[in-house]
Design a binder for these strands. Structure first.
Lengths: 341, 341
DNA sequence: ATGAAAGCGCTAACAA
DNA sequence: TTGTTAGCGCTTTCAT
């Protein structure tokens, strides 16, 4: 089936005229080898086109060199894709593979799916994007089994097993942009209540208003957990207010596109009659007109840093102290215009 | 780190009072064992909570029990996600794991990425969704290395290493729907030239027109390879024709959303002044208004069948003859209305 | 139908 | 710093 017999460390050792253990040491970057031997062995490795057999190493070390990424499997989950892409880059660099696991529903299904994964493939660590990073049962299970994990954007950012980006000041900047355009009546639609993102983005909204001495009008704020049609109702209510907002910030781009629809039904032209600011830079916005101003979250980078932290600090027990939290970026496109009074 | 010592086949053999080879045979469904022993061993396995060590098996058999899924990594590639989801379901059932590999560009990057994957993880087989299923270099490489593969929706459907669905008749039905609404001037915008999907969908369009005795107007047909803004230009040209189409079919939903935009700019109301029919049931359409009529492609099922075929027929060499090709489904929503003359 | 022994390619322990 | 030896847990001869 597969190719002819592959060379092993024995062949390398023979050609380089050293012991197999020396070869093994060089393969594993053990510093206790003479430079001359390193040179000889590296030459032999190239000459023989030697490739290490990872399964033999796995058998011996009881490590799988596999990182598991869990994610909720719903249509259009671009976030998970980006996390995975980033994790794969980091794993490539560090010699690990990524195993992914789409989760269809929470509860029973989640736990049995994870158990199955552990029993079959024995991942060396887990990456948990939101909202799975909040699941206590899951966290306890991994903890009990002593399997390290890194959480992405969890609600509680105390701890050293997480990466996130500063969404508070990112949102603050987005609202500042609206304020700089002259807006003072700024609506806020949040359907991420319960996620860290929902809390952070609301906090950023409040900070931006406060620093500009704008009093928050509670009737301009809609906060909900995810639910079908909720954004549509919220947007309709806001825009039908006697003194409606002239700009709306929403916690994610998918809802921004619903606001576009409601605005069009109410004959409000974006950005002339209404400014809209989203968050995420979701691929769906590519098809919105006018192009949506939004905040790009560095999700790929979060996946990359999560995998790197997991492997280096928690699996290979390196002494990693500095944690990199990538930055958000305000993308100004055409959905926000100056206030026309 | 990990739990206490796990039980091995030796423990199972001891408890069941048979040899380890008998346990191994039962684990591998070898028929040459006495029923009484099967019962004893299965009992011991449960009693000891025995889990097979897959790495030991991998080392011994030179199989990785890994299936590789390659895909192009562009924003909003929902197709790849669905293929992967389906492949994971099938692999779960059959005891394999899925390794995924996003490809950023074709050419050099693709080949080195695949080589790297083979050297590191040695997948037992590959699943190639379009357009990677057309890449001759890749096909040759896998062929030369004797690694089995299954292609999804390739241009040439002669062969037994592929799955696809009948997009010709699916498109035909979609166009029939438009015709049944009274439309005869039906535009066709294709930006999948070079993909099997592009050819098939055009064929379905022509068949539907022919069977309704509608003469194809070449100026209503736009065929292009993927290129930015091409759909916008195409839609604008069609809709500005002296005798413009009253309905447009487009080969994918993302372009449908661009047609929505152009229509709105030209003050054509969907579905009153223009009917639009898409293809794919892409998540982006959820945010289109009015809801887009389109054709759902059973992509998850294609991924599932591809993995199943790959493993059973080409890896485990079972005698699989019947190949399941899942069906497309016409989703009638609100973007197509009757012809108002 | 069943078992004993060998060995897959690697790393860990220990010795030198 | 280097080498020798002994397995990791499984499957595969080859006997029986």
């Amino acid at each position: 089936m597969k190719e002819a017999k592959n060379n092993t460390i024995h062949d390398v050792a023979r050609v380089a005229k050293v012991s197999i253990k020396t070869v093994s040491r060089i393969l594993n970057n053990d510093p206790r080898v003479r430079e001359a031997n390193v040179v000889k062995v590296k030459k032999a490795i190239i000459e023989l086109n030697y490739k290490m057999d990872f399964n033999a190493r796995r058998l011996r070390t009881k490590q799988s060199y596999l990182i598991a990424v869990l994610y909720f499997d719903y249509r259009g989950n671009f976030y998970a894709n980006m996390v995975i892409g980033g994790a794969i880059s980091a794993c490539d660099e560090l010699g690990y593979d990524v195993l992914i696991r789409p989760i269809k529903y929470s509860g029973e299904n989640l736990m049995s799916s994870v158990m199955h994964m552990i029993e079959r493939s024995n991942p060396d660590g887990f990456i948990l994007p939101p909202p799975l990073c909040e699941n206590q049962l899951l966290l306890e299970l991994l903890n009990k089994k002593n399997i390290p994990l890194v959480r992405i954007s969890p609600c509680d950012i105390n701890g050293n097993d997480l990466v996130y980006c500063d969404e508070v000041s990112a949102t603050q900047k987005a609202i500042q942009h609206l304020i700089s355009l002259g807006h003072t009546e700024i609506g806020f639609i949040n359907y991420l209540v319960g996620h860290a993102a929902g809390n952070w983005r609301y906090e950023g909204y409040k900070k931006a208003l406060a620093e500009a001495d704008i009093k928050e009008r509670p009737e301009l704020v809609e906060q909900h957990e995810y639910q079908a049609n909720i954004v549509e109702h919220a947007a309709r209510r806001l825009l039908k207010l006697p003194n409606p907002p002239t700009a709306i910030f929403t916690t994610n781009d998918a809802s921004a596109s619903i606001i576009y629809r409601v605005a069009s039904q109410l004959n409000k032209k974006i950005p002339y009659d209404l400014s809209v600011m989203g968050f995420d830079d979701d691929p769906v916005v590519e098809y919105l007109w006018p192009p949506l101003s939004t905040v790009r979250q560095p999700v790929t980078e979060l996946g990359y840093e999560a995998a790197k932290l997991l492997i280096r600090k928690f699996i290979q027990k390196e002494d990693v102290t500095e944690i990199v939290n990538p930055k958000c970026e305000l993308l100004i496109r055409n959905s926000c215009g100056p206030l026309i009074s």
